[in-house]
Design a protein around this nucleic acid. Sequence first.
DNA 1: TCCTAACTTAGACTATGTCTAAACTAAGAA
DNA 2: TTCTTAGTTTAGACATAGTCTAAGTTAGGA
Lengths: 138, 138
Amino acid sequence: MSDLVTRLRRHNWRITPQRRVIAETLEGSHVHFTAEEILERACERMPELSRATVYNTLNEMVALGEILELTLEGRSKRYDPNADHEHHHLICEGCGLMKDVHTVADPVDWLPGDERHGFAVNRASITYRGLCPDCRAA
Amino acid sequence: MSDLVTRLRRHNWRITPQRRVIAETLEGSHVHFTAEEILERACERMPELSRATVYNTLNEMVALGEILELTLEGRSKRYDPNADHEHHHLICEGCGLMKDVHTVADPVDWLPGDERHGFAVNRASITYRGLCPDCRAA
DNA sequence: TCCTAACTTAGACTATGTCTAAACTAAGAA
DNA sequence: TTCTTAGTTTAGACATAGTCTAAGTTAGGA
């Protein structure tokens, strides 16, 4: 059973077949899919699954804090099942390949007090960009 | 004259009245507008300006490297005329207010070699999130 | 069993952005 | 000045991503 399903169950969330397929599709991959990609893959296992259910379910899982919504480039949001583990993203400017990465310390500490404009700053996400090994060689 | 217009002229870019209005609209504000917001404001000065020209012009200015395209949350891209000055963004989770901020060092230095996956990493952008003074008080 | 709230569905709708074909404009050539 | 031509602008059609709605389905409690 998917670990994400276990976590969702703890929110008194009804685990329907549709939600299980969506959660397992998300968790079974190491790339961050768009909603359409999740729909496409989940439909291989459950062809009658509707687009609205995928969008609803993803939005609810984000609201529960169990997955992360990533707004990176491109027009579509991506979803990251790894919500409980602080990490950032490294994106190849050539081919779009994305990797999860970890920094040596919390980036919030690198924002001086006089740059905070009175905000209560509580988190930060970093998007690194560069060229992956294949695109460097090409 | 707008400084952005001066920079654009150096690219042998024909400065038409439409492009001037768009550049001045961008540069005259301290918030990062969406394309629709730029269209709306620019139309106050040039009512016949078309949507396609705004989108074309913004995309060309991004391609020339004179403005930045920001993909933050929400469905629309935002445009930042301050392309030549390294900075990051601080966003209020309550009201969406956005500020430009500066860190004490380059975030690329915080990514250890073994987290780079063989990439040539060349830049990083940080999105800080928190609550602005007004939303903290409310 | 029935009832009810939660869930799912198809498809309409909205928002954001791109494309196309035609018209317009500006600058150099004749 | 007029012609030519490449670049620019325009309206509106089109594409894509996501949300909403109303009706039908399902699951669990009374």
